[in-house]
Amino acid sequence: MSETVLEVQDIVKTYNQGLPNEIKVLKEVSMKINKGDFVSIVGPSGSGKTTLLDIIGCLMRPTSGGVFVDGVDVKELGDSELANIRGNKIGFVFQQYNLIQTITAQENVEIALRIMGKSKGDAKKRAKELLELVGLGKRLNNKPSQMSGGEQQRVAIARALANNPSIILGDEPTGNLDTKTGEKILNLLKKLNNENGYTIVVVSHDPNVTEYVDYTIHIRDGEIEKTTNGTTTNK
């Protein structure tokens, strides 16, 4: 019924392949994310959830198996095409925010647009709109060091939205925030999903997260253990 934006088929990730310390982090994982889904991937440390996110986000290639973003098989792509997929189709939100400390909030969003070839003027305008969307319309010219963790994460979300990606990937986006601020961020993501139709996948071991999402993929020892529906309390 729904359009698939992301599909992984039997992906395997092995580190130190062929060496005595070989370790298989992902064992034939398959999943599909549809347009408009808000999904969380949870699991204990070392379960392979971060590796799965890195592969979905085209930051890393799987040892075997296929990854399809908007129907494109990324296995076939070269490094620079992969970079283009990351820029155009995927928006990242990290636990550490990963903003550039020496430039303003607006410039942090602009840089994502400029990298993908937008003109300076267009990038400035769109960055302003996006920061307004995440509630930072008055903090455009503040540098990350002048902002709280929650505000910095909002800037990171605005940056992730910059090129109108098909999917937004969050790597523990609330991991560095207190519970209350974390909830605000999750509410913002929920709003972006509900009102703006963004597809969002969040990796977390924060049990709160499962309450905001449509469904949760539980991962353990490199395999999908089960998929549960969200409690949809805030929906």
């Binding site: 986000g57 930051l59 490094d79 620079s80 970079a83 283009n84 990351r86 820029g87 155009n88 928006g91 990242f92 990290f94 550490q96 990963n98 550039i100 840089i111 994502a112 990298i115 993908m116 940056r159 910059a162 090129n163």
Partner: peptide
């Protein structure tokens, strides 16, 4: 390093 990682994550190519 981190910043370069971020640049790559948000679409910067090696060439860039």
């Amino acid at each position: 390093r981190r910043e370069i990682g971020v640049m790559k994550a948000i679409g910067a190519t090696k060439r860039r």
